[in-house]
Amino acid sequence: MKLTIALFGITREIVGSPQLELTVPAGQSVQELLAGLHQSFPALGQLRSLAVAVNNEYAQPDTQLHERDEIALIPPVSGG
């Protein structure tokens, strides 16, 4: 299945694009997605934390992803 990952802040700079399109096996979990991304972009591993948002909510590691999900990487937030 094809996933589109929105990128913000430092993750956008690490990947070098505001969006990433990936083809992954159906039923891939958040944890598996992160493992793949860490391999492709080792600098992600240096962040203090890296969460995944699915449809505007923070996802758990075992959350299964679907093709139409709105997915985003959430590096450490610093609003306020």
Partner: peptide, 9 residues
């Protein structure tokens, strides 16, 4: 807000 809202500075 500072812990959960996806805003970055």
């Amino acid at each position: 807000l500072k812990e959960v809202v996806p805003i970055w500075k």
